[in-house]
Design a protein around this nucleic acid. Structure first.
Lengths: 332, 332
DNA sequence: CTGTTAGCGCGTTCAG
DNA sequence: CTGAACGCGCTAACAG
């Protein structure tokens, strides 16, 4: 049997399509008896309003799309949960899609906003240049989470990555670190900010910039492990390593341990994100906790504002407080 | 400025909407000069066809939706990558959404197929009863990956979880295990199958069923850790633990190590999935590798068949080969 | 309270 | 090769 339409429902219920539509949309202007007949017919025909027809008519979809580089990141999936829960309260369905860092795929997903496949966009780890995001944010319903582009028109919520890096680096220094190193990720904006903070805190403590080791890589375990091996070979050997995230830190700890050295006695290690990796690691990682869920909720609120109200919208960055979590991978 | 339509494009290009539409859809029956004028107008007006209107007219969306309990699972995200890549080759955009195990949210997402928001569904970890899936698979474009319902009309691709569990349990036994234990997850179908295989292999080796320890929990680190602590308190203490997945195994290893025992000398531990956790763990985990990416690709192929051809479709289960990966968490 | 009707923007006949 | 016109399924405005 083919798909039922409002027409079919109206016919079987013995009413007009207008009445069916009113029942469907919860209009109060329907008699009890009509409502019953329509409800029965809907049930009998197993009818569902066709999304595309409804969307076309209403000029909105009640769907939003989140775009991220990958879905494995605990921070992203937690933030998306916040987006999703907040969205559900306002009747929105939240979808997500990974780009794998491919600009073409990202563009295709972003186009879903432009062509009206979704009402709004939440961008987690954009590949496109800042200007493009700024231009998009000028008129479109887009918000950013975690990674915020340098664009005036855009709105984004994140933690202050630079300050968080300052905080955790200060902790390393306060607990005895003299020769600092960092395994970072310059491909990510947050990675660059963390590097900035790291260097700021080091300079503040009077450490000569040319004695600071820095290696660049991805946010993954193998990166951490391999790059830590490089650092171990340096002379003088660093006595503290700040890693761009917990997974990298876990790789770093692994390399140090495999080399027969102790964490934190020989080398202290700090991570970032307070993901489950931080607790899985031995020793457990000192790290920075991000309020990811709240970030997601707040991002949706801002997006909702853009989707439902005209005129100028909230702009700029919203920073949420982070928290230094001290565990056993650093000295006390 | 308001959104441009085909009308606007036609007007600026000095042609009819039909011609615009033909250009848009790559029809060969358009003169070169018309095509140029239309292309220029599209560019000038920054025009994009409205998805809902196009979907309504064409009666398809070229979008598919994957539904999973959560997005953090490495197997799921890898399988989704397979779906996504295969889908892209056929022009489909793949989206994914987590249910967090909430049946209501799952239903809402499944409804997106029924109301035509997407053309097809890939189900990873269904909450709904098997009959519902079977009924849905009867007429709808749905395929399953990893977790396959007991329903004739459905199609799904996975590994043979039971056999994989048999394989890895045999390995434990062959390398000296005498008192087996398992930390499983009966909430998941795959978890139940792995338990079956585990018990099968144990029985095959002549181990009395009442001497086999089993504890039930989620597929996460804390479950593994907490339940391993229980197992350590048992008398006699198990000398091998098969865990429902790698993350649980990592928790298990952690509890054993914290208790001052050695893995694998005192207690061997086996995981499942060959996720990155297996390599992060110390010692690295013996585990079962799933061809997740291929599973995703094949699932999409089957889905495509359902979406594009009428009549009866492929049914039943498709099992892909798994692989026992022996590392240091078990004896040799 | 209800029925009728006019589009939403697009793809696709069917004439020419 | 092109234009005109219809209708996809639905909601909302209007008339009763």
């Amino acid at each position: 049997m083919a798909r039922a339409t409002v027409q079919d429902v109206a016919r079987t219920a013995g009413v007009s399509v207008g009445t069916v539509s009113r029942v469907l949309n919860g209009s109060p202007a329907v008699s009890e008896s009509s409502k019953e007949k329509v409800t029965a017919a809907i049930h009998q025909l197993n009818y569902r309003p066709l999304a595309s027809a409804r969307d076309l008519r209403r000029d909105r979809t009640m769907r939003i799309l989140a775009i991220a580089k990958n879905l494995n990141s605990p921070v992203i999936s937690e933030a998306f949960r916040g987006v999703s829960d907040a969205g559900a309260l306002s009747g929105y369905v939240s979808l997500i899609a990974p780009t794998a860092g491919d600009p073409e795929r990202e563009q295709q997903l972003v186009d879903m906003l432009r062509n009206g496949s979704v009402d709004g966009l939440v961008m987690f780890s954009p590949t496109m240049p800042d200007e493009d995001i700024g231009q998009m944010a000028e008129q479109q319903c887009v918000v950013q989470v975690c990674e915020i582009a340098d664009a005036d028109a855009a709105f984004g919520v994140a933690i202050d990555d630079r300050q968080a890096a300052v905080d955790i680096t200060r902790h390393l220094i306060a607990t005895g670190a003299r020769r600092l190193a960092m395994i970072g990720n310059r491909a990510a904006r947050s990675g660059r900010l963390r590097e900035e903070g790291f260097r700021l805190a080091a300079a503040e403590a009077g450490m000569p910039a040319d004695q600071i080791l820095f290696v660049d890589g991805d946010f993954d375990f193998h990166t951490g492990r391999r790059h830590a091996e490089e650092l171990l070979a340096a002379t003088p050997r660093p006595d503290a390593v700040f890693c761009g995230n917990d997974t990298v830190a876990a790789g770093c700890v692994r390399a140090i341990t495999d080399a027969g050295l102790r964490v934190p006695e020989d080398i202290a290690v700090a991570g970032f994100d307070d993901s489950v990796q931080a607790e899985m690691c031995v020793p457990e990682l000192t790290t920075i906790r991000q309020p990811a869920y709240s970030m997601g909720r707040l991002a949706f609120e801002a997006l909702l504002e853009r989707m439902t109200t005209a005129g100028p919208h909230r702009r700029g960055r919203m920073f949420l407080p982070h928290e230094l979590v001290v565990r056993d991978s650093t000295n006390s």
